[in-house]
Every structure is written in structure tokens, then in C-alpha cells.
Simulated scan of single mutants.
Amino acid sequence: MAQQGAQGGRLRRPRGHRRGDAGDRRDPARRLTDRLAAPAGQDAHWRTGEGCPAILSFQITPIGTVRNDRTDVQHTDNWGAVRSTITIDERFGEACLQGLEGFSHVEVLFLFDQFPEHGDYREPRPNRGRSDLPPVGVFAGRGPRRPNRIGVTCCAIESVHGRELTVVGLDAVSGTPVIDLKPTMTEFLPVDVKQPEWVSRLMSEYFRP
């Protein structure tokens, strides 16, 4: 039986896929579609591969677009002073950012739409192809060529006006689709963060002005 997502997208189960027991009426896939539901009229669906469990695929509609003076995706450093304006789609109304002005920072989730995915993620690679850095798995790095090509950056809020949010320090070129915004809250911030020594070398110029 198909399931109904929060936005009307229908989740289709492959033949032979069984629902969990009676106590598990919202299985993990349903919870995922509740949060990342397909837009109305567009279906989320299951796909299967030989020897693989059912995998949920879904579509996300951007909520807005980045505008700034950065256009070269190969210029990967010096984002610290970049000022970007995110214009939210009019379907969310003029009050969609109301209350965000009370926060100092916002987490911006965006799509690396100008980068292709790697064809094979199984082989560890050094970040940026640098020979002085160790090879790491795809989920031990933050590069743009990754599954689903989703980026996330915590940025300082400069101003909020209607559907326009201006931030500083967003590492996304002009025209980048934004898929979500979340206010940065102290309770969500980690403490006692640690990282390998090579990360500081990799990121030494990244957020410099």
C-alpha cells in the first residue's frame, strides 16, 4: 500500500516489501518522507538493486537562491567576508523569515548544483587531490563532489528584510539553490570539538577574508 507524504508525495513500496509490525506504523522511511517530502505532484519512490535492500529516492524543491559576487566554483578559498543575499521563494510569504533577526547565525543548507557527483565513492581520496593530505572516505570530508551534493554552512546574519536574508561567510557561488535554513541555537552546538591536524592545513585560507 502506498504511503502519503506530508506534501502529498506518494511513497511506493516495491513488491515484497513488508511493513513493520503493528507497533511501528511510522517506519524510518515514512519519517524521512515526513521531513523531506516530495513536492506536490511529484512522487517519492523506492528503487531496488540486485542484492540490495529497498532504497528511498526523493526530490527536494529549493526554497530560495543565493546572490553574491562569487561566480567561479574553482575559487575555493577566502569566503570569510563574502556577503550573500538569499531570496526566499514567494510561495512562503513575506513573513517566512520573521523571528530570524533575533539570532546571530543561521545554518544554510544548499546544493552544489555546479559539481557532478563522483562515479565511485568506495575509494578514499585526499581532499582537493592534495598529495600532502591523507586519503579519507567520502563522509570524512566536506567537499562538493559527494552523494546528493548537499552543503551546509553556519553563517553570520547581517540583516533580514521580508523574504531577503543577508549573511556573511556563506561558501556558495551566486545562483546556488538553497534547500533549507535553520537558526543556530546554542543547545545544538557541540562542545570539545576535536579534529585531525591536517584539517587546519586544509582550511587555513578557506574562511580568510
Results as ranks from 00 to 15, higher is better:
Thr153Asp: 12
Arg30Val: 15
Met185Pro: 06
Pro209Phe: 08
Leu181Pro: 02
Phe139Arg: 00
Val178Met: 04
Asn127His: 11
Val199Gln: 05
Gly8Ser: 07
Arg15Trp: 13
Asn127Leu: 12
Tyr206Ala: 02
Trp79Lys: 02
Val178Tyr: 02
Pro183His: 14
Ile86Ala: 08
Phe188Met: 06
Asp113Cys: 06
Phe58Lys: 00
His118Pro: 10
Val108Cys: 09
Ala2Phe: 13
Thr184Ile: 12
His161Gly: 06
Glu90Gly: 08
Pro39Asn: 12
Asp72Glu: 12
Met185Gln: 15
Glu205Leu: 11
Leu36Glu: 01
Pro62Gly: 07
Asp27Lys: 02
Gly141Met: 10
Thr33Met: 07
His75Phe: 12
Gly99Leu: 08
Arg10Gln: 06
Ile157Phe: 09
Glu158Asn: 13
Leu165Val: 04
Arg149Pro: 06
Tyr121Ile: 07
Leu189Cys: 11
Ala2Asn: 10
Ile150Leu: 14
Thr85Pro: 03
Gly175Cys: 03
Phe188Val: 09
Gly151Glu: 01
Arg31Gly: 00
Ser84Pro: 03
Glu158Phe: 14
Ser174Arg: 06
Ile179Val: 05
Leu202Asp: 15
Pro209Gly: 12
Ala172Phe: 03
Pro135Cys: 02
Lys194Ile: 14
Gly49Pro: 00
Glu164Ile: 15
Asp113Ala: 09
Trp79Ser: 02
Gln42Met: 10
Val82Lys: 01
Pro39Arg: 09
Ser131Met: 09
